[in-house]
């Protein structure tokens, strides 16, 4: 495996609210390697956005990192002061937001917004910054950048705005790009273009990307590796193929089989109930109340990670040698069969 650029170890984040402590992220660990895209998937409230906010040091005021380390370049970002963060945030690690409209200043010209980071960090003079901004705009596929440079965000379409946000994120040549649902607000055709752009930039700049999304189709498109989160914990991680073609955790099964794909005809597999209240996370495996495969031990003890392959780990007691053998839901098995057949057909051609 290539060089690890970012390591998150036993990260725990909680929020204090009027009702008590909300345990948003509970003891998660993962690595990000240079030049790879790691997708973090999960429903809202699973802690995926909070994780990235902790990495960038932009947790809201009532959120605190209770424990764990975020190692980047010899620094522990979990214990960094605001001053120290200035040399990292936006320069080495930058962020692409979900909603490109609220991420841009509506009364500031686009060009100035791209130049801002460069000028503020004193990395370039105004003239150089302008040159660089125009080059960035060209690179993210904005036609006629000289004219667009002097326009305001409202004169751009949603897809173009997201391209601008990406250009701003790339302004200081970061090593890590965090994309927080960058295409959720976009139409499917525009989404495809933005994903192409992100993939292309990653190749060219050898960027490492953390990609947050709940859309599994998007994950399949961008991810090298996938981490599935539920109730503040990572429940399964592995290479993209391993997660999609050989998932092991019942929550991953449920997630994969609850959305129809273009060939789905049968009744959808739906997860009963609602995600747990993180004020009082359930004891044991947090998914056990909604899990039809839950074992008795799930109610008492949280499962450790079981190794499936060198790159694939899943936290479920079903992988314990003493556990009964169960098969994934039929809908999912059939879909995986279909996908494998399609791949074989393609390989045969």
């Amino acid at each position: 495996m290539s060089e690890k650029i970012l390591q998150v170890k036993d990260l725990t984040v909680s929020f204090s609210s009027y009702a008590g402590q909300v345990h948003a992220v509970r003891d998660i660990s993962f690595d990000l390697c240079r030049g790879e895209t790691l997708a973090i998937v999960g429903e809202s409230g699973s802690g995926k956005s909070v994780t990235t906010k902790a990495i960038l040091g932009i947790l809201p005021g009532n959120g605190t990192i209770e424990g764990g380390e975020i190692l980047y370049n010899g620094m522990d970002l979990a214990k960094c002061s605001d001053k120290e963060f200035e040399s990292v945030r936006g320069k080495k690690i930058s962020l692409v937001f979900q909603d490109p409209l609220s991420a841009l200043n509506p009364i500031m010209k686009i060009g100035k917004q791209i130049m801002e980071a460069l000028v503020l960090s004193k990395a370039a003079t105004k003239g150089e910054a302008k040159e660089r901004a125009l080059e960035l705009m060209r690179r993210v596929g904005i036609p006629q950048p000289e004219i667009r440079f002097n326009q305001y965000p409202f004169q751009f379409s949603g897809g173009m705005r997201q391209r601008i946000v990406i250009a701003i994120a790339l302004a200081c040549n970061p090593e890590i790009l965090i994309c927080d649902e960058p295409t959720t607000a976009l139409d499917v055709t525009i989404q495809a273009q933005i994903l192409e752009l992100i993939n292309e930039i990653k190749e060219r700049n050898n960027l490492s990307i953390i990609f947050i999304t709940h859309d599994l189709g998007v994950v399949a498109n961008v991810a090298d590796r996938v981490a599935v989160m539920y109730a503040g914990k990572i429940v399964e991680f592995g290479r993209s193929e391993e997660i999609f073609y050989d998932p092991k955790n019942p929550y991953t099964w449920a997630l994969l089989s609850s959305m129809p794909d273009l060939d789905t005809k049968e009744q959808l597999f739906s997860i009963p109930g609602t995600p747990p209240n993180m004020l009082h996370p359930p004891a044991g495996d947090a998914f056990h109340e909604r899990n039809q495969y839950a074992l008795k031990i799930d109610t008492r003890e949280a499962p450790p990670f079981f190794k499936v392959s060198d790159t694939h780990y899943a936290a479920t007691w079903l992988l314990d040698p003493r556990a009964p053998k169960v098969e994934p839901p039929r809908v999912l098995r059939e879909r995986i069969e279909r996908m494998k057949r399609r791949a074989a057909e393609h390989a045969g051609q």
């Binding site: 495809a192 192409e196 189709g217 993209s240 193929e241 999609f244 399609r342 393609h346």
Partner: peptide, 20 residues
């Protein structure tokens, strides 16, 4: 055609060769 070709599907191998 364009709209259909843009749908991302939860199938990594298919996604790698999908042409928009």
């Amino acid at each position: 055609r364009s709209l259909l070709s843009a749908i991302p599907q939860p199938d990594p191998l298919f996604e790698r060769r999908r042409v928009r």
